[in-house]
């Protein structure tokens, strides 16, 4: 059931059950574990997500490299003082949350990799912002995480979620797709609308390269999480209004896989292309490596 989103929709429709229930039942069957144990494990992940968001918003996070310094805190403070963000109250707060998790990750703080550490900001940002705006319970958010996880499994089974294999489209693109599908369900959309949101969000992120400055999970990764949240919200609103993706979600995932396979190695996490290879990107990398090589004889 986890090899196509179409089969998930068909199961949900034929059994008259929401996507999260179909996915949870699948996990119970494959793991042999109880519903309560799986829900408890997922609740622990939700709590870790919330803690990472809170940490990144509460005060400026300083990363190991010093490349980014508390932008999440800066942006969050700004939008709270002056409610003039063009992206609106809900999206702007989600953007701040996504960056918060990205910064905490880069600062060696604790996060939940969803689906990877580099893309870990998207899902907590979307779900926790919807909770703030619409008052969803933690139990509903845990259900949404099962839906997101099921979508992620389909993506891994048809393509992959690693920047080294498929570029940033596979990391933040997959995260946006997982978040979009689960958000539509949370907001009362049908399973079909959830899957259209997956297709619409991923379509808008196809081709995105993985080009980390100095090879660190930091620039542009933290901001890509913010961009992915915006793509997710766009797709969610469109899908809930009944807009459909002409290309079915499963085929969009397959297209992502083929694009990733043909992507030049320079654009797959090697820090040899894109923003990493700009004059400033190279200079930042050089400065960072000179500094860390100076510390290379770590010894005690």
């Amino acid at each position: 059931m986890f090899t196509s989103l179409q089969s998930l929709i068909e199961l949900a429709e034929s059994r008259q059950l929401p996507l999260h229930e179909i996915i949870l039942q699948g996990e119970i069957a494959s793991s042999g574990r109880s519903r309560e144990a799986l829900q408890a494990d997922m609740t622990r992940r939700l709590e870790t997500m919330r803690a990472s968001v809170d940490k990144g918003l509460a005060s400026p996070v300083h990363t190991l490299s010093g490349l980014s310094k508390g932008n999440a805190h800066k942006f969050y403070t700004s939008i709270r003082q002056n409610d003039a963000a063009l992206t609106g109250s809900c999206l702007s707060r989600a953007i701040a949350r996504a960056m918060a998790v990205g910064e905490v990750n880069a600062g060696m703080g604790c996060i939940v990799a969803t689906p990877t550490a580099g893309a870990a900001g998207v899902l907590p940002a979307v779900l926790l912002s919807l909770q703030e705006a619409r008052g969803f319970t933690d139990e509903q958010l845990v259900n949404a995480l099962f839906t997101a996880g099921g979508i992620g499994i389909v993506i891994v089974n048809r393509a992959n979620v690693s920047g080294a294999a498929g570029g940033c489209q596979a990391e933040t693109g997959s995260a946006a797709a997982m978040a979009a599908g689960s958000a539509v369900e949370l907001l009362g959309g049908t399973p079909g609308q959830s899957v259209h949101a997956v297709a619409l969000s991923l379509s808008n992120m196809l081709g995105l390269v993985c080009d980390p400055v100095a090879g660190l999970v930091e620039v542009p990764c933290i901001l890509r999480n913010a961009g992915a949240v915006a793509q997710c919200f766009t797709a969610v609103d469109l899908a809930l209004a009944g807009v459909e993706s002409l290309i079915p979600a499963d085929e969009v995932i397959d297209a992502m896989e083929r694009i990733g396979g043909r992507m030049d190695e320079r654009f797959r996490e090697t820090a040899q292309g894109g923003l990493a290879a700009t004059p400033t990107g190279r200079a930042l990398a050089q400065a960072f490596w000179t500094r860390t090589r100076g510390e290379k004889t770590n010894e005690f």
Binding site: M42, R44, R45, T48, T63, L64, V104, N105, A106, G107, M108, G109, C110, I111, V112, A113, T114, P115, A117, G118, A120, L123, L145, A148, G149, G152, I153, V156, V161, M178, L216, V217, E218
Partner: peptide, 10 residues
């Protein structure tokens, strides 16, 4: 997919 819970960044 939803995990692991880990200290970042990679």
């Amino acid at each position: 997919i939803i995990g692991p819970i880990m200290v970042g960044p990679s």
